[in-house]
């Protein structure tokens, strides 16, 4: 591969697939399982997380030299919590329906290990520009994973996509798919598929 691994676009793309936070790194699984029963919820959760991740990464990268290393984790959490509260208030004021649907999970973005992980592993060691690209990539990757889960679960569990009915009123809804077990089943299925594809590829490379 002739592409520069450190270029902005390479950093951006890495988070989307190669190092996808949910599907490859297995980070941020709690929201990924808990609120992905419809496409709408997935988009809202992905969007809120992306917002928090981008703002926190850029800010952490900007102030990285001002924070003594002993208290850096506390400082990151403080920064993340502030942006989460902003997102929480913003959603409640401007899109209250979605805020209602996501409930407590917005506040729990604070403890999404994916976000803290990016601060510690990347933003605190790189320039704001690179931190921005990394956060955008990781956040988009998170959103894509949530959308995959949300789409599969909503289509099977409710027979609809983004609230639009697909199969008519006679479709026997597979309710378990929008309940918590459906989250695990779907994630397991997706991971199985990815692992299977990966093993095919390494086999072919031999």
């Amino acid at each position: 591969m002739a592409i520069d691994k450190h270029s902005d676009s390479a950093i951006f793309r890495r988070g989307i697939w190669q190092d996808n936070p949910v599907l490859i790194q297995m980070l941020g699984l709690c929201p990924a399982l808990a609120v992905t029963n419809t496409v709408k919820n997935s988009i809202a959760m992905g969007g809120a997380t992306l917002f928090v991740l981008v703002c926190s990464s850029v800010l952490v990268s900007l102030v990285k030299n001002l924070i003594p290393s002993e208290v850096r984790i506390s400082a990151y959490i403080l920064i993340i919590a502030t942006f989460v509260t902003l997102a929480d208030m913003g959603l409640e004021a401007y899109v209250p329906e979605i805020h209602k649907a996501l409930g407590a999970f917005i506040a729990l973005i604070v403890v999404n290990c994916m976000i803290l992980g990016r601060q510690e592993a990347f933003a605190s060691k790189n320039t704001p520009r690179k931190a921005l690209m990394d956060a955008l990539g990781t956040g988009t990757g998170f959103m894509i994973a949530l959308l995959m889960l949300g789409a599969i679960r909503e289509i099977i569990g409710m027979g609809s996509f983004f609230g639009i009915s697909l199969f008519g009123p006679n479709y026997a809804k597979w309710v378990v798919m929008i309940l918590p077990p459906g989250g695990f089943l779907t994630l397991g299925g997706i991971l199985l598929f990815i692992a299977w594809r990966e093993s095919k590829r390494t086999e072919a490379a031999k």
């Binding site: 691994k5 950093i11 510690e120 592993a121 990347f122 060691k125 790189n126």
Partner: peptide, 14 residues
Amino acid sequence: MSDIEETTKPSTAI
């Protein structure tokens, strides 16, 4: 991997 290092390894210890 590279020098903009990715540390998901436990090198994050205090």
